[in-house]
Write a protein that binds this DNA or RNA. Structure first.
Lengths: 150, 150
DNA sequence: GCCGAATTAATTGTACACAATCAAACCTTA
DNA sequence: TAAGGTTTGATTGTGTACAATTAATTCGGC
């Protein structure tokens, strides 16, 4: 007796289909692509859209704030924000009280995009074919994973 | 009566915390970072690791095959595969029976990496703090989402 | 008030991602 | 078999991502 059960052979763990990571990697990219048609109409990219989500709510944030909330560093944010600045969507200026910080402020042209973007979340929700309980459970699980990974 | 319930105000849908997409985007990047220490030891990147997962299983695949399985196009794969070719991990040659196709073949140095990578999946599994049922349910849901998005 | 440590952005360099275009090879069918 | 359309990779250009380094500023302790 005591035959080893081996539900999965040892190197099955190295098959793509059994990876934990790949579905996240793939879904993330496919989701971004699904946003494309909506975002293209506003002339912005997906990470830029994320920056706007924060600015539409907070009006003014430092680069550090944005980095902490989006989990992005200055090497990504600085050029991205400069491109958005060139389009007059936001302003970049040093904090007079702490010259190390750069304050990102929403400009009128950026605020104007909010109305145009207001229909995007509902459209995307319909796009993913998830029930509301599924969605809620998923978001809970993902944010839980995030805290463990960070 | 008939007071509008408004469980969520209209523009709450535009808050980052209520987005469906962001958790996927963030978890995907944090997961990739979690792989980093293991992959760095082998000198490869995360997308290169994905290519290896397929080559370790199939030994030989066309660029088209890789693109279909990884959901990546030639603009991403061609330079990535050229870098892997320079490290003698794989070979790139035209299919003699169809000169449009490029066949990617695993070389000994690439095969040798398989043993060194064999412990990675288990290590990552421990890293994410998920029960096996949670993991299975998650993978099912994500692959289901993938089919809907593609 | 001064010095060393810490904080914050910016810069540099490498590696994806992907849209758009191009070019070669193949296939179809008249 | 020749023309037109399709398939397949490669190329180009833009925009992230991120590690590592640098530079300016601030803070804390003495």
């Amino acid at each position: 007796m005591d035959i080893t059960p081996t539900p999965t052979a040892p190197n099955d763990l190295l098959k793509l289909e059994n990876q934990l990571c790949f579905p996240f990697y793939a879904v993330s990219r496919q989701l971004t692509k699904a946003y494309q048609p909506y975002l293209l109409a506003l002339g912005l990219t997906y990470p830029q859209y994320l920056v706007f989500l924060l600015l539409w709510e907070h009006e003014q944030l430092t680069v550090k704030d944005l980095g902490e909330k989006l989990l992005l560093d200055s090497g990504t944010l600085t050029p991205l924000l400069k491109r958005m600045e060139q389009k007059q969507w936001l302003s970049r200026r040093r904090d007079p009280r702490d010259e190390r910080s750069v304050i990102i402020g929403l400009l009128p042209a950026g605020r104007a995009l909010e109305a145009q973007a207001s229909h995007i979340p509902a459209a995307m929700l319909a796009r993913v074919h998830l029930t509301l309980p599924e969605l809620a459970a998923l978001r809970t699980q993902l944010t839980h994973m995030l805290t463990h990974l960070a």
